[in-house]
């Protein structure tokens, strides 16, 4: 059985003027850690709100944990753990008060499901009498996750849980998700960070309300049709322009330290071709290597194809 099914869902705002979700379909298997990867405005939050019954889709069907989002909305509300994008808890309640409040609201107690949250809660337990507003971003997020888990949901829906959180906390958070997955909870998580895609079992790449690809991260990367080169020299901006102007180059864009370059035709000696171009333009300290593409390269390619 699928834990989440989304079928031809379309959602518009402002009386149809703004198309947020455009005929999207995907499925999340039971026990899967599934990622919705896309920038701001890709439609991630709208999908979450439709799945949590907070919004009605214009068209299409969706179900969570076997319950229809329209007909069985009350059941979904009982069986889903949800962390909204801007969830920030009650700042003026302590850690313990927040947790016990949400436990009661979900009709349970902290003790009843303590084993599920124990690993996470142990990390914030020393601060249980501190007001949530005085916690760091990472700790807030742990507490929020505890609150979302407190009623032992079948499906966990996390909307951008790692946005604005520092690297250390982000790493820890993904570790926690892995642990939860092992306990059999289905997790649907969204993120604007392309590098987090690799931490999911399967991902959907979202852009402007459309799904560009659904697969495992490995398969998406494998499907990248070009040989990708990394290039840099002492004058990176000049190199960028020089390569772009060259007829043999298909694409060239800045990517961290290097430029990522693809050639129009598959070439045996692509490295050499690029080096020659760079040398002809008077660059020094040239560095060119064949590199493995990442999700972000695939994303850029796919959004180019989409137009």
């Amino acid at each position: 059985m699928n834990a989440v099914t989304v079928k031809n869902i379309t959602k518009t705002y402002d009386k149809g003027k703004v198309l947020a979700v455009d005929n999207i379909s995907f499925e999340v298997k039971e026990g899967e850690l599934f990622g919705l990867i896309g920038p701001d405005g890709a439609g991630k939050t709208s999908i979450f709100r439709i799945l949590t019954t907070l919004l009605l889709a214009d068209k299409g069907e969706a179900s969570v944990a076997g319950f229809d989002v329209i007909k069985d909305y009350q059941s979904i509300r009982n069986n889903v753990g949800y962390m909204p994008g801007k969830f920030s808890l009650y700042q003026d309640l302590t850690v313990a008060e927040n947790l016990s409040f949400f436990a009661t609201v979900f009709g349970t107690t902290i003790e009843a499901n303590y084993d599920l949250i124990k690993d996470i809660y142990d990390q914030i337990k020393p601060f249980s009498n501190r007001r949530a507003g005085k916690l760091s971003g990472g700790m807030k997020q742990k507490l929020a996750l505890c609150c979302a888990l407190i009623h032992k949901p079948l499906v966990l829906l996390l909307d951008e849980p790692t946005t604005g959180v520092d690297v250390v906390s982000r790493k820890e958070f993904w570790e926690m998700l892995k642990t939860l997955k092992k306990q059999g909870i289905t997790i649907l998580v969204s993120t604007p960070y392309m590098d987090e895609a690799n931490l999911c079992e399967r991902i959907a790449l979202l852009q402007k309300g459309k799904i560009m690809s659904v697969d495992t991260p490995e398969n998406i990367i494998k499907a990248f049709p070009y040989t990708l080169y990394g290039a840099k020299s002492d004058q990176i901006y000049k190199l960028l322009n020089d390569l772009r102007l060259n007829g043999q180059v298909e694409s060239c864009y800045a990517f961290g330290e290097f430029l990522h370059v693809t050639l129009k035709e598959k070439q045996e000696n692509g490295k050499k071709i690029l080096r020659v171009i760079a040398e002809q333009n008077g660059h020094s300290n040239i560095w060119i290597e064949e590199i493995k593409p990442g999700i972000e390269d695939s994303f850029i390619l796919l959004s180019g194809e989409q137009g």
Binding site: G38, P39, A42, T163, Q207, A254, S303
Partner: peptide, 21 residues
Amino acid sequence: TGGVDPVTRRQFWDMIYEAAA
């Protein structure tokens, strides 16, 4: 460029590089 889509982000860095140049 936090949260911006990868393509826009690239265009943005183009501008930054240009300004730096």
